[in-house]
Design a protein around this nucleic acid. Sequence first.
RNA 1: GUGGCUAUGGUGUAGCGAUAGCACAGGGGCCUGUGGAGCCCUUAGUGAGGGUUUAACUCCCUCUAGCCACCCCA
Length: 448
Amino acid sequence: MSVSNQPAKIEDKKATPTKKVTTPQSVRGMHDILPIDWPWWRFILSTTEEIALSYGFEHIDTPILEKTALFTRAIGSNTDIVEKEMYSFVDKSGDHLSLRPEYTASIARAYIEHGMISLPQPVKLYAVGPLFRHERPQAGRYRQHWQINFEVLGEADALVDSQVIMAAAALFKKLALPVTFNINSVGCPTCRPKYRQVLLDFYKAKKSDLCEDCKQRLQRNPLRLLDCKVESCRALNRNAPQLVDSLCEPCRNHFVKLLEHLDEIELTYELNPYLVRGLDYYTRTVFEVWGEEKAESSLGGGGRYDNLLEELGGRATPAIGFALGIERIVTELKRKNQTAPALPKPDIFIASLGDVPRRKALKLFEELRESGIKVAESFTKNSLKGQLEIANKLGASFALVLGQKELMDSTIIIRDMENGIQETVDLHKVVAEITKRLSQKSSLTTLV
RNA sequence: GUGGCUAUGGUGUAGCGAUAGCACAGGGGCCUGUGGAGCCCUUAGUGAGGGUUUAACUCCCUCUAGCCACCCCA
């Protein structure tokens, strides 16, 4: 610590006009999750855990950073996500790293790396965490957003497809959000190229009628033509050959089986022949979850990726999974005017007057807290009035008042915040007294 | 990434080329040790930087951010 032996120069203050310090700002597209929103987040996260565990999914966490190559190999280097949306950099040791733009590649990597192939199959994993994509921000589109991810690895049967979709449906049911499942099949490396050609032949003659974007898509990713939003393209698409008609026998059987399973469990879905997903690794089953109104931005989506693990260097391992956007679910819950389950209110509020009583109150707080009572305080407020105001705002059931008077004869006031009735009790018996009153109160409310 | 709209205390909002007003929230008081009502006082703002002008929160430009449509996606 240095102490200046010179008096502060007044001229300096004048000379440097109070330069406006720019207020700090979060990085574009990245947002704070504030206390006011946490009831919703808690609700979603706890529901997710409950559903995941009940369906036999185990929790996994993977690093936010991965080698860039993992994503370029998994997602496909010609997709937008990899081409222009990744936060990629070279670290100090020269490694090419990226903030993960999606979960599946990391989980596939972990499955291979830890030899989960030798575990009883299928392996069911779920993860929750932030993902990063350098997109242009909009409501419900963030550069850092959170996803819930479910993956089932090591099983090809359409039964797990239906189970995975069932788990997603159960989650939304528990959240009381009405959603629609859109389902389609995008085939496999055997049948998709054939369909691609059929599609190209179809559009070749009509190229001049297509919008500019679709002309591009014709080159890059013809399947994407199907979900174009331009009306003239959509009109064309209504006559376009459908993928389901080009599926090879095994893919067709898989798809039919899935739909049968979904009918069996009475899960309503919509067959959407125009549903195409953007990531290269999808095979066969693909689906999206749409909210009630804002169908433009889906709440989640997923699909089968039977070849991904092999492409990443693992043994051939069929798999399926889906991701849900937490921010979008929060928005949807708010839009539906739902109220998130509130945190329990404090049982007790400790008010104190004067220094010595306050010190005693500090200790009493610990005693109460350790005996499992939800206790609140506002020790930095001096007036009793101010403290009771806080107690009221917090919704505490009882307030304790400890002042000089009470401390002198070792008593404390218990005030029932509901009716204002108060009673003076022995300070040493206060914990027992509180416990008694709380159990009385709770038994009363359960009777009513 | 393309095109467009917007920006006033912590929040929600007025206003005008010349004094920035309201509500809520926050702090304090009426009530020297008792909450929920009322009343009073008070804190706090023109996103950042430039330009035009005697004068800019207001008009112009740039930046930043948010939002809308697209692209794409959760």
